[in-house]
């Protein structure tokens, strides 16, 4: 399974501004570029700057691998392509949800559904679920969890910033409660899709 993540120009611009205070000297982050990777268009390229995108790709890939029943399809590759159309915060959680729904749509056999939930902790310790881009930037810590639909168990977690052990547990509990709403939404949206058949 491959996880390809492409961000459009707008996102790249944002991350560029973000990294500018750090690059006071002449330290550029890791570059990577692949050309002509899509067969249908006349030209295509993917460009990578920094490791954030690549690590996200791996987080999504590992989460998908945890629920997809790969043994039923040996010698088969599953490619997940995520294109960021707009970013209003909690990008990774949104990508996880999109990947899950795409896998369901393709009819890939899965052990369970999964969803991503992002929590942010601000300077006075208040917990925000599904933070906006602005809230994320101002937050002391941002935690993203992937949870499965059967046992509500943690499939993946990634965190950034400072937080205590108790706060982590608090965020996880909040994410588990929130996942219920996401799974309910999945069910409603799929029921709508199958309503005319």
């Amino acid at each position: 399974m491959e996880g390809v993540m492409r961000s459009d120009a707008k996102i790249c611009g944002e991350s560029g501004t973000e990294s500018s205070p750090r690059g006071l000297g002449c330290s550029l982050r890791h570059f990577a570029c692949e050309q002509n990777l899509l067969s249908r268009p006349d030209g295509s390229a993917s460009f990578l700057q920094g490791v954030a995108e690549k690590s996200r790709e791996w987080l999504i890939r590992n989460t998908c691998e945890a629920v997809v029943l790969g043994t039923l399809h040996p010698r088969t590759s599953i490619t997940v392509v995520l294109q960021v159309i707009s970013d209003a915060g909690s990008l990774l959680a949104c990508c996880l949800n999109a990947a899950c729904m795409a896998l369901v749509d393709a009819g890939v056999p899965m052990r369970a559904l999964f969803c991503g939930v992002t929590c942010a902790l601000d300077s006075d310790g208040t917990l925000m679920l599904d933070p906006t881009a602005k809230q994320e930037k101002e937050a002391r810590a941002v935690l993203t969890f992937a949870l499965d639909s059967v046992e509500r168990k943690l499939l993946m977690s990634t965190t950034k910033g400072l937080y205590s052990d108790a706060e982590l547990q608090q965020c996880l509990a909040a994410a588990q409660a929130a996942s219920q709403h996401v799974f309910r939404f999945y069910r409603e949206s799929l029921q709508r899709r199958y309503s005319k058949s």
Binding site: V67, V104, P109, M110, R111, A112, L113, D148, S149, V150, E151, R152, A173, Q176, A177, Q180, F183, R184, Y186, R187, L190, Q191, Y194
Partner: peptide
């Protein structure tokens, strides 16, 4: 939260969900 599972989280009788939408897991 874990104990209070979503509708369908617990095993349902196959007879009662015939011709209804079922989800993975």
């Amino acid at each position: 939260v874990v104990a209070e599972s979503l509708a369908g989280g617990r095993a349902r009788a196959a007879r009662t969900v015939l011709d209804q939408v079922v989800l993975p897991g």
